[in-house]
Design a protein around this nucleic acid. Structure first.
Length: 499
RNA sequence: GGGUCGGUAGCUCAAUCGGUAGAGCAGUGGCCUUUUAAGCCAUUGGUUCCGGGUUCGAGUCCCGGCCGGCCUACCA
């Protein structure tokens, strides 16, 4: 695409300003003819923009000399002096360039720079009459020429398609987007710190798996030529991390990408980032404490707050103890009757109509109830809530609750109306585990992982396990409205034309 | 996959009932030595997403396609 344009835009093209690419390319050619390299290999930086800004204290009018580099994002030219702003990884800083300080010839060349060019600037700091800390340029240099113009400076980039397909443009011009991804990175860093502090070993397990287990989701399939066999991309981390419990790593965690061959929505991307952590000699109660501490510490350290604003409604309050409620009680409250679980399936189905939801009549009894949870209750759980005592049919990898055969030792943490993190008292009885797997194998999305059962037969310590969807966590931590705003390059239909 | 809304200059958006496609920013030329979306004067730039159709005439109406938003479905 751009290759063609390079060939088309030779010197015969008129430079009346109609083709910005051609204008910029002509400027580049002029530089080369004058013996200057428009794509330099280096610039001696002494400070980032943020570091430079800190050098000039509140009351100071002048400061030391700095050398910074970045992309020009604002350019205000005047006859004999100009202001410009560059952006680097820290943010923006203004520079003031005077003809009488850099010389007539240099100033003329300076005026040929474009928005989007990368430049380096060296000079002392001072404060303008409006109080902005600014670099008074003694020297500047073009270090990389931009041939294409930036999006509009005031409105930024709003076309969703372009935001996702050309994320670099979004990051250059949309401040809140840049900040959100910096926050995401800090969140993941603090998650690691949290587990390292507690003696967890960070590990990496296979993404290519012959059998994908640990969740009920359709996998992506691929083919490995060397062995001439098909592999799945992993849908969960669980079964390999548990093998490591068997192997004696009794506190492990992994942060990694999982892939689920399902639909797209504001809450779903086919590849997403999952945290899973397993701690031996504790149970789901221990994981409850761990999960709450994790999210509180991450919010506090990465974002400096425990109250998360939402687009509408009260903020999410992460402080203190969190609400804990039994699955059964939530259901009874939602359906408004005490005998729900005694009703035959047909009566349950009738009742779901009153609740205004559509439920597939082919579903099993417990699935009808779970639809009530997912379609009615879940979205109301805005403040952090641990839902416990979940029916055993919903989860084959957890232990049965001691005093209630019908439920398992599990919690499902809901925040912001979404499931964020489930945690279990992990099943370590190989007989019970095999039986539970066998019941599921008939289902389309389940395969029996014999290799995992073999590992269990060697003995796995009792353990609590937890999984957390990082993307969904970042959604409410950063006030995003869509999972795609938390993923730098979300999955899109491949575009047929160049961007 | 289904429903629905949208796609106009590099970007952000207008365009009446179907009647000459416009503005701001960006660009180009000029003025301007403390600007803050800098200002002033002049000015270039269009396959109106693509392909058909109706019409004297289509950005606008109809059909098909492509891409996207939202809702929905699938979803441990």
């Amino acid at each position: 695409m751009s290759q063609e344009q390079f060939q088309e835009n030779d010197s015969s093209v008129s430079l009346d300003g109609s083709d910005q690419f051609a204008v910029r390319q002509a400027k580049l050619d002029q530089l080369r003819e004058a013996g200057q390299d428009p794509y330099r290999s280096n610039w001696a930086q002494t400070h980032t923009s943020g570091e430079a800004l800190e050098l000039l204290s509140e009351d100071a009018e002048e400061g030391p000399e700095v050398s910074v580099a970045g992309r020009i994002v604002a350019f205000r030219l005047m006859g004999k002096a100009s202001f410009l702003k560059i952006i680097d990884r820290d943010g923006k800083i203004q520079s003031y360039v005077r003809k009488d300080e850099i010389g007539e010839e240099e100033y003329a060349r300076f005026k040929k720079l474009d928005l989007g060019d990368f430049i380096g600037i060296r000079g002392p700091l001072f404060r303008t009459k409006t109080g902005e800390v600014t670099i008074r340029a003694k020297e500047y240099g073009l270090v990389s020429k931009a041939l294409r113009p930036l999006p509009e400076k005031w409105h930024g980039l709003t076309d969703n398609d372009q935001i996702y397909r050309q994320r670099y443009l979004d990051l250059i011009v949309n401040e809140e987007s840049r900040k959100r991804f910096q926050d995401r990175s800090r969140v993941i860093r603090e998650i690691r710190e949290f587990f390292w502090e507690r003696g967890f070993l960070e590990v990496e397990t296979p993404m290519l798996q012959a059998v994908s287990g640990g969740a009920a989701a359709r996998p992506f399939r691929t083919h490995f030529n060397a062995l001439d066999c098909d592999f799945n991309l992993r849908i969960a981390l669980e079964l390999h991390l548990k093998r490591l419990l068997v192997g004696g790593f009794d506190r492990v965690f992994e942060v990694g990408r999982v892939f689920r061959n399902e639909g797209l929505s504001r809450r779903h991307n086919p590849e997403f980032t999952m945290l899973e952590a397993y701690q031996a000699y504790t149970d789901y109660r221990g994981m409850m404490e761990l999960t709450r501490s994790l999210i509180q510490q991450v919010a506090e350290k990465a974002l400096g707050k425990l109250q998360m604003e939402r687009e509408e409604g009260d903020p999410i309050d992460l402080s203190g103890e969190w609400r804990e409620v039994k699955y059964k009680d939530l259901i009874l409250e939602a359906v408004g009757r005490d005998d729900w679980f005694e009703l035959p399936k047909e009566r349950k189905l009738e009742k779901t109509k009153d609740l205004g939801i559509e439920v597939d009549p082919e579903l099993e009894d417990f699935e009808v109830t779970n639809d009530v949870f997912e379609k009615v209750i879940e979205q109301t759980l805005i403040q952090p809530t641990f839902v416990t005592h979940i029916p055993r049919e919903l989860c084959p990898l957890a232990k049965i609750t001691e005093d209630d055969e019908s439920t398992i030792d599990v919690f499902e943490l809901c925040i912001n109306g979404q499931e964020i993190a489930p945690a279990y008292s992990e099943q370590n009885d190989p007989f019970v585990q095999r039986e539970a797997f066998m019941r599921q194998v008939g289902e389309e999305t389940q395969e029996l992982d014999d290799d995992f059962l073999l590992a269990l037969e060697h003995g796995m310590p009792p353990a609590g396990g937890m999984g957390l969807g990082i993307d969904r966590l970042v959604i409410f931590l950063t006030g995003a409205s869509n999972i795609r705003d938390t993923i730098l390059f979300p999955t899109l239909r491949p575009s047929t034309e160049g961007a």
